[in-house]
Design a protein around this nucleic acid. Structure first.
Length: 303
RNA sequence: GCGUCGGUGGUGGAGUGGUCUAUCACAGGAGACUGUAAAUCUCCCGCCCUCGGGCUUCGUAGGUUCGAAUCCUACCCGGCGCA
């Protein structure tokens, strides 16, 4: 039996992913598509911040109007006071995918969080050790060197791995490794496979990855426009509302630079930097078919 | 015109006789990524390169010195003060 298709639309911020996703979904829902036996499509967002309710303007969340009747999953599914994680995302997204396919529809994963996309398209297996905030807090007070030495005792293999990856100063990584090692004895070997052939053989779906990119100068202009609109739409007001709702300054910082006393200049600058990091992530996935978003994209070719 | 302060790598800005291709930050480039991922972390960033080193830089031109981004002289440029 043929595997169900899942369309993945990814790429850096401000390249028009959401738009394209809706366009494709509409196409798959048309009368013509129905005649061809296609039952429509639903979008699954792959954005680490759009899952939160109330983070609308700053995250560039798609509006109901822009959805044009296409159902969007994994948007506004958590209270911003609660912490969300990749593993939770993975669970929900895989469930959503199955539900959509069950309805005979095509899932369209759309977003810019590479880690989240890989979690569902590459079958990453996260060690089943939930965050231990108390332990983390205690560990963070220690130096990176001390953490590394501690990890070396608990799990030499993962310690060596971290050293090889030049992450000796990466407390986030060290702390999580210790957290897992303490719970399981050691950190399981990474099961997610960057080897796409392997991942594909295991996955029940056939992923079609479409990457949108823009030439640097155009991307910059689009980001400027987007940020300008954010402020015009009331970003500052959104932050006020979040504070009133009981979101702390510290928590706001975790939501990214748009929520940390933003200025136009700062947000533009940080967004550009971020898009570069996004590209670093996406570049290593050779499965992605890239399209210049400043040019007309032939949808027929894509699906 | 006189006086005075200053001119440093793409930018800001340290350095004021040797350890200086010159701290640091930003910008730029490359990369990592095991439940925080717009997070977190690493490397490169004058030129050449066999990656060990080789070569040329601190407004310009001279000079002092074993040795100068650092001291002296002249000139050019900019700020300020007095005329």
């Amino acid at each position: 039996m043929q595997k169900p298709k899942v369309i993945v639309i990814l790429g850096p911020t401000a390249t028009g992913k959401s738009n394209l996703a809706v366009k494709i979904a509409l196409r798959l829902s048309s009368g013509q598509a129905k005649k061809a036996g296609i039952n429509g499509a639903e979008v699954i967002s792959a954005d680490s911040r759009q899952v939160y309710k109330g983070l609308d303007i700053g995250t560039g969340k798609i509006t109901t109007k822009e959805m044009k009747g296409i159902f969007h999953h994994l948007i506004d599914v958590v209270d911003p006071k609660r912490k969300f994680t990749v593993a939770k995302y993975q669970k929900k997204a895989i469930y959503a995918m199955a539900e959509i396919v069950k309805k005979g529809k095509t899932p369209i994963i759309c977003g810019g969080t590479g880690f989240y996309i890989d979690a569902i398209t590459k079958g990453t297996v996260f060690p089943k050790v939930p965050p231990n905030l108390k332990l983390r807090k205690a560990l963070y007070s220690k130096s990176a060197i001390a953490l590394f030495e501690y990890l070396k005792k608990l799990d030499p293999r993962r310690a060596k791995d971290i050293k090889n990856k030049n992450e000796l100063n990466n407390k986030v990584r060290l702390v999580r490794a210790i957290e897992i090692a303490k719970a399981l004895g050691k950190v399981p070997k990474l099961q997610s496979d960057t080897n796409s052939a392997m991942a594909e053989s295991v996955s029940p779906y056939k992923f079609i990855k479409i990457g949108l990119y823009l030439p640097t100068d155009i991307l910059k202009k689009k980001i400027e426009k987007r940020v300008k609109k954010m402020f015009a739409d009331g970003l500052l007001n959104e932050i006020k509302k979040l504070k009133k709702f009981g979101i702390s300054e510290k928590r706001l910082k975790e939501f990214g630079f748009e929520y940390d006393s933003p200025t136009y200049k700062k947000v533009v600058k940080e967004t550009i930097k971020y898009t570069k990091r996004q590209m670093t992530w996406f570049k290593r996935d050779k499965e992605i078919k890239w399209f210049d978003a400043s040019k007309k994209i032939n949808l027929k070719k894509l699906i």
